[in-house]
Design a protein around this nucleic acid. Structure first.
Lengths: 347, 347
DNA sequence: CACCCAGTGGGAAACGTTACCCATGGGCGC
DNA sequence: GCGCCCATGGGTAACGTTTCCCACTGGGTG
């Protein structure tokens, strides 16, 4: 069977004709612009309803705004990002802005491609979540369109930032484990080689925070960092390496830099025939639904993704309204959520 | 510090001037259209590279195409959807099309809003994943823009569909459990009240398939369905209800309609002090990363999300190329992935 | 030698919307 | 009573691209 013929779209001209006014008048009503009397408003709105008119965003973008916010997500699988997204959509849902997501496809290349695509599609503003791009590129992006960077430290006059204090989060974990009597607390980090990103990326800050906190607790000698990656497989490899350490070199607690990493670590520990938390404690980061899941019950750090998203959306709206206001950095504090994968150190 | 002044975007006019040709010529080169000599092509391409020109999708959309595909995802949290998305982006990545996601925000209302937003933003085609909308609405959407519906049964001349055979999937689970000696196999389903959707939604088909398979195995007497919802909490409630059954009414195996449901069920079973799979077997559906996670190791049904996505993208490209070709229905077969949450029935 | 056609290039009008500015008319201050 | 200003409405030119069609060239054909 052949599909039915597509109908022509209702345009502003149709509305104007139907309401017996000019297109300019309709446009004014649409944008709540100055210069439309209440009667005019009513007449136009009725015509809009009767015809089922909806403005064409692309055409709007040519002169004015598209009323669209683009969000670049580096990895849809990471269960932390939906929280951020919720905060964004929630803040935007009673504005006239619509959120569209660009799937970052992992990797700097794919991320750049998606970001360009969002710009080319006339987004009024961009929220980049944990971007890998260089600062120079971020500045370029921000010069093309109002931009908020989420989850990265380091500031620029060109864009606003919202981030959680990862150093503080790491300190919370180390403090918690130390209070439970652990001394040999190891950390699985995401390997970062690019020197310019080194200080800005959350993973580097967490590793840094871990080292600082260990020293603060007089555990400098016990600092033990394994570099893999923030993936389940990275956690698995990292934990395997830690478990190979002999006797008093083997850690009694593992601080994984992300919940997915903790997942991999738990898998490796289970495979090794060890028990959590009796033989070894494990803590993650992000407080994903996975961590909250009863049978897992992973101690984790809550980043308040919803709050991050809310702030990002708010800042973006502000910046769209005034591109010249000075840039803002919002830093939020994480909280520790102790669960059943951490307990008193053995012996 | 004030952000730097934004630069004007490079347009096709700039390219034309720089290459000393007409804008028409540049446009032809951009679209590989007929009527541009090799020399012209080379000259224009060089100008494009030198100026770093990228076409403005919104402006293109006004006359031609935007080279953008919109994907409506009802729930980013469901770990099954990223697989589908991967299949889509993978198929599209060496075309000139870009994928943008519309977050469905759960619920028919939000879904409708996002779908409209995608249409208004000039998408060349739409992929709707497991939409809740009525058939009438789907037909309307499809009449506005080429559309592929994923994960819903029932066909229409207006759109193509790609779906997994849920009846078959349910049969795989029941067959597996029956072969392990289970007789009292219960099912936790997602309650569906809307009669028009009843036959089309995957959840209904799974419940149906469960009943058919139970009868086929001579277990008609043991059919036991609890209606909650496809959420973790729904699984928790459903399992609690099942565990309250006394003696020989209590099931020895639970077929949860989705992995998230199985998560909730596992939580309830653990809380009740029972052991999986010794006391009770549990199977899920979707084969998410959660199911594959070692310490969980949930028996599940794999829907080949990647294949679904691939097919959806392929069909959509075909339909964009020819809006008049008859509609196509692709049905894929699921496979069972037995893991450690299912074992021989007790006694 | 007139004619035609294929190949190539460009001019101009769309596409749907908004920004800018001007025209009109009535009320108000002086 | 005269001029001024504000409130209201509309005309028109953008915005960046594609599509439609016409013009020109040169070579082959009748």
């Amino acid at each position: 069977m052949e599909p039915p013929a597509p109908r022509r779209r209702v345009t502003i001209v149709d509305v104007a004709r139907h309401a017996q006014v000019s297109t300019t008048a309709v446009s004014k009503v649409l944008r709540n612009a100055y210069g439309a009397s209440p009667e005019m408003q009513a007449k136009v709105r009725r015509a809009i309803d009767e015809l089922g008119y909806r403005p064409h965003a692309g055409a709007r973008g040519l002169r004015g705004k598209t009323y669209t916010i683009g969000v670049m997500l580096p990895d849809i699988r990471n269960p932390f990002f939906p929280d951020v997204l919720d905060g964004i959509t929630h803040t935007l849902q009673d504005t006239e802005y619509q959120v569209l997501l660009g799937p970052g496809d992992c990797g700097e290349k794919g991320e750049a491609r998606v970001t360009e695509a969002l710009i080319d599609r006339g987004m009024d503003g961009l929220i980049l979540v944990a971007p890998l791009a260089s600062r120079k590129r971020l500045d370029e992006v921000a010069s093309a369109v109002p931009t908020v960077i989420v989850g990265r430290h380091g500031s620029s006059p060109a864009y606003d930032t919202v981030a959680d204090d990862d150093v503080e989060g790491a300190a919370l974990v180390v403090g918690h484990l130390a209070a439970l009597g652990h001394r040999r607390i190891a950390h699985i980090e995401h390997l970062e080689t690019d020197p310019t990103r080194l200080a800005e990326m959350p993973n580097a800050r967490r590793a840094d925070g871990y080292r600082q906190a260990m020293r603060a607790h007089g555990l400098e000698e016990c600092i033990d960092v394994v570099s893999t990656s923030y993936t389940q497989e990275g956690g698995y490899r990292g934990a395997k390496e830690l478990l190979e350490r002999q006797g008093t070199h083997r850690p009694t607690a593992v601080f994984a830099g992300a919940d997915v990493v903790a997942m991999g670590a738990l898998e490796a520990i289970t495979e090794a025939g060890l028990s959590v938390p009796d033989d070894i404690s494990v803590a993650g980061y992000d407080n994903t639904t996975f961590a909250a899941f009863g049978p897992v019950s992973l101690t984790s750090v809550d980043q308040a993704g919803h709050e991050i998203g809310r702030n990002a959306a708010r800042l973006l709206l502000e910046r769209i309204a005034d591109r010249h206001r000075p840039s803002v950095q919002v830093r939020l504090s994480p909280t520790l959520v102790p669960r059943r994968t951490t307990a008193r150190a053995p012996e």
